[in-house]
Design a protein around this nucleic acid. Sequence first.
RNA 1: GGUGAGGUGGCUGAGUGGUCGAAAGCGGCGCUUUGCUAAAGCGUUGUACCUCUAAAGGGUACCGAGGGUUCGAAUCCCUCCCUCACCGCCA
Length: 423
Amino acid sequence: MLDIRLIRARPDFVRERLATRSSELPQQVDDVLKIDSERRQMETRVQQLNAERNKLSKQIGMLRSKKESSAEQESNVRAIGDEIDRLSQASAAAAELQTTLLLGIPNLPHANVPIGADAGANPEVRVWNEKPVFSYQPLDHVELGTKLGLFDLERAVKISGTGFVCFTNLGARLQRGLTQFLLDLQTIENGYVEICPPHLVRRECMVGTGQLPKFEKDAYELEEGQTFLIPTAEVPLTNLYRNEILSYQDLPKYLVAHTPCFRREAGSAGRDTRGLIRIHQFNKVELVKITTPETSYQELEKLTADAEKVLERLDLHYRRIELCTGDLGFSMAKTYDLEVWAPGQGRYLEVSSCSNAEDYQARRMNLKFKDVDGKNRFCHTMNGSGTALARLYVALVETYQQPDRSILIPEPLRDYVGFKEIR
RNA sequence: GGUGAGGUGGCUGAGUGGUCGAAAGCGGCGCUUUGCUAAAGCGUUGUACCUCUAAAGGGUACCGAGGGUUCGAAUCCCUCCCUCACCGCCA
């Protein structure tokens, strides 16, 4: 969440930055400022009354110990108490409203993020390899997978409903080998610490990373909204140190986890309904970094490169785009998307989204560090997929299909999956 | 799931209704002493918020969380969370 002090001190700056995301946001700044000023007025008054009451109560204590009458002080203090009750209730309600409003305001885009309305304005910043050329019409992963028995979509629907997949036989093994490959790459080569976190998290965690309260319909909830199935390992990983004060010497933290991700895809019914591209449960290897503010942008570049290494090792064609202000995720100040080419689809698929939330998530989850001077400051958090398994799988299978409809396993993966081809 | 004990500052640990934000010790920081190290002595040492400000200052809240009783709560009551022990069940 945004720093209320920044909003107070530089409201025009905040309004102007938010307007680059969406035109209705500046109004929310005014709403917060109004309630903030009302709240502070009441709070100040309550504190004055409390000071008065504390003074009188002490007098009462002293008078009683001297066996003197304190009737006058008692009646005064009772009157003050009533006033405090009334005012502090109002002030608490205002504080709650303020928090609610603040939680609903997205992060400020970083100054160097290109301004634009939607995905159409996202500039391409890097391209790797070229589109593979086929002498025939490449098949899509559903045809290939069905023919080779890599997964069973019909039976998955039977047991779980649309939007689920069941990997089978060599198809399941391919995913397992791919997962192991990704984890080894990020831990052994890139220095991330492997975490196997819970897949069910408390509500506060979802608030901490920004999924809640605004996007509750997108998540699978349990126990009447007290716990949620994670939509990404970003949630448990980033929240690992929630409510803690780390030492600057502990930073940066590099964390990686392989988990399933559960998404209801509430707003996207009817989109990408075929195959593995948009499903309710998919696996993902997620990278998270917790850093000082001074190094976060440099760390974001490195993190993005760490994710790109996956696609490069597998020799896939991809591009890196930067999200413009209108397309940025709620909690993020800057984001690069990695899109891999899927020949059977004839389009790029987003397999990683690498973002810096700056201190936006850290504020929501009260994650601080003690700097060299002993001052407590909010950490910066960033995350990116390294990468989403299901879509990587699609690109891999479609790119490495052979004229006889077998699939060649790229060299770096062979030891992991245990075979050179699937036919 | 059952029963019992318990959650106090960076740590250990006192405190059972009134100058308690909280004794004491440890740790940390500063100064003094010192050939170095060590030790000793003295001082200092939480967070958030409000107000005011050039700076300083003043105030409020916080003893797991939330609510209640009371003129007044770390202390009494209720709910929840968590930890520990034992029992039951179980991958």
